[in-house]
Amino acid sequence: MSKFSLGKYLLPTYTILAFVFLMIPIAYTFIFSFNDPFKNTTGWQGFTFKNWTGVCNNIDVCLAFGNSLLIATIATIVSTILGTMLAIAVTRYEFKFRSATNLLLFLPLATPEVVMGAGLAAQFLNVGIPKGIGTVIVAHILFTLSFVVVTVKARIATLDPKLEEAGRDLYAPPVQVFAKITLPLLLPGIMAAALLAFALSFDDYIITAFNSGTEVTFPKYVFAAAVRGIPPEANVIGSAVFIFAIALVLVFQISGAMRSKALAKKN
């Protein structure tokens, strides 16, 4: 049955090729972070470490990167807190407008960024708030909020309500139950939500473009530079962020795998 064995290897082969395909632009960015910008920024000019060692020689890209970090950090903290509270409220409590609330929390996910960006910009314009870092943060909290809610909700769904009841049964008042049982058990979900919020905020261009005025973030810098060609320092920052994020994820995964292996051994 040659057809059968073909089917057996078809899917793994396809998956490997698909991953190679997905990695192409990442590899490109990484390689071109070592490009020596001899005359212009397009095309391979030669290998150098200069862009990595002196990334802030290009002061604009560094400032933009700093802005993005600041915005993403603040937006992540606020939206993680607000989103976690909302997620707990809609999954664990009964109240009058619960389905309407769920719909309202879903709507931002169904809103294209360009609409959300234009809407907020129209609002800031009408109220007369000048655009700047503050308005970008407000916008980023808004568009990451629903992602946080969805992620934390998914974690709450896997949480056995009996555990909280056991806490109440064992003399813990509500605040203690939340602090000692609910929160520690939700923590992986909340962490995942925060990471997602950070990544979304850090990478956002469209909403930022509408609400940042003259402030430059990293994506805004890249967008402006794309016409002429992206300077290698931007590729350095992109690659560094990528390596950092992948390392973080791998550390999480390896420690998780080791823990479950240890579990399996002890049994």
Binding site: D160, K162, A166, G167, P184, L185
Partner: peptide, 12 residues
Amino acid sequence: NTVFQNYALFPH
């Protein structure tokens, strides 16, 4: 105090 059906031991 209660001994719960699936024990409800705190996994963490």
